[in-house]
Amino acid sequence: MTTAMVEARGVRKNFGVIEILKGIDLRVEKGSVTCLIGPSGSGKTTFLRCINHLEKVDAGRLYVDEHLVGYAERNGKLYEMKERQTARSRLNAGMVFQRFNLFPHMTVLENIIEAPVHVLGRPRREVVVEAQALLDRVGLGNRGHSYPQELSGGQQQRIAIARALAMKPKLMLFDEPTSALDPELVGEVLDVMKSLAEAGMTMVVVTHELGFARQVADQVVFMDGGVVVESGPPEEVLDNPRQERTKAFLSKVL
């Protein structure tokens, strides 16, 4: 059995009395791309945030690179990790948000080198060279000294991807990375994500871009009402769905 990058077993999550995740089972193989699709409110984003422990898991187990997320298991009990430990464990995964969430008070370059320098404590000069290479990779090599607000949404999202990559994560999480973009800017972000997938990065992508899912995903997961309804290769889930709910959803969005 190959080792999975992400493995979820019966993951549950409540917000108050509302149960958002009702037992998610999912495997993401190393080097694969998984797209989470489904109607809004289906729990896709919450599940993604659980992988990074931005949300606490209420029940079930969630492993990232074979480490339990947010808890330490001792003597048959789960001990919640200290904030600092949780922060450390988050370094395995880079995350890209719907609304970019770049630090507006820092230039593009400062955004990218912030965490490598101030969290990992790496020498600034070395990180700046890497950051410049990342900027070139996302096609914004000449924008290092701009402030995020001076850039278009598509450019900001590409910077956000570069910022996440600067931490050399094993896994990249994308939370609807193109939903806040003007239609003509979606392509440039998807192109960067495609090249990332081709380079062998393990990716979990919450998206409404079914074209992207069909083209890039190794696994498409359809979620609805806090459960995984159907999962498999894109040609199965997107083109020959077996479940009625999947069919109904696809007929609405296609």
């Binding site: 370094l91 948000f97 630090f103 990992l120």
Partner: peptide, 23 residues
Amino acid sequence: VDKGQYDAARALGMSGGKLMNRV
């Protein structure tokens, strides 16, 4: 300050004082 800034800083491994002081 936008709540997304906390998410972004946490996702980059920041916590506590560093998150407050730097972001």
